[in-house]
Amino acid sequence: MSEVIVITSGKGGVGKTTTTANLGVGLAIRGKKVALIDTDTGLRNLDLLLGLERRIVYTLVDVVQKRVGYGQALVRHKKYTDLFLLPTSQVADKTAIDPQEMLTIVQAMRNEFDYILIDCPAGIEQGFQTAVIGADWAIVVTMPEIAAVRDADKIIGKLQSENKNIKLVVNRIRPQMVKDGTMLDMTSIDDILSVDCIGQIPDDEKVVDSANRGIPVVEWKNSAAGSAYRDVVSRVLGEDVPFKPFETEGFFTRLKHVFGH
């Protein structure tokens, strides 16, 4: 029986799609059969992050409108053959997929996959309802920024009222800023949101580089974000992995930054 997880946030641009792609690839690397569903209709990106944009034929909207079954819309990853993407339409809008229709599709897909990850659009409108309805539990992604944490709290309230279990991923942490006291730290975020945290992802230039290439950082050995995402994968699989402290810049590196440029 599969586990269906929605990746959501409230505020836009905090790393939902990045997290979905990395968790998906990470679970596939660990031998799970995984389907990723993009519900950001009209603004799809998951295909790009996975390098699958040129292989899309049918979309979720075609499935909803019964032109094809979901199996025909699934795009299989070349390298990870147990990883599939169910893309959405780039031309339709969020009203094209009704929550009940989404629920039916997700229920039908459950038999076939170990994990189904749903990439949610930003906001709390219909797109959110559609993304959330079929999920067993939710990952709320936020950033250590005042507005992102506030919006996360709103989403957490909404998910709790729908009785969804919630785990937190804090993305784009800048260890040096946290150390300097210019960025919210995990203790403050825990105090405010009181949700079990399964990921602390540092801000990492390699995430941008990896998006350019369509290869998620989770498989990059030399990426700090990639390593943090591998730990998220382990925690989703139920393993008890401690949080590793981040490297901050040493005194000389900082001097270099101050005087270097």
């Binding site: 005042i146 506030r150 006291g181 210019t182 403050s188 105090d191 405010i192």
Partner: peptide, 19 residues
């Protein structure tokens, strides 16, 4: 005053209202 502490305090207040 560290701005991270300031953010923490402000969040506490604003969420009290939001919630």
């Amino acid at each position: 005053a560290k701005s991270s502490d300031l953010a923490h305090q402000r969040l506490k207040f604003v969420l009290l209202n939001d919630r």
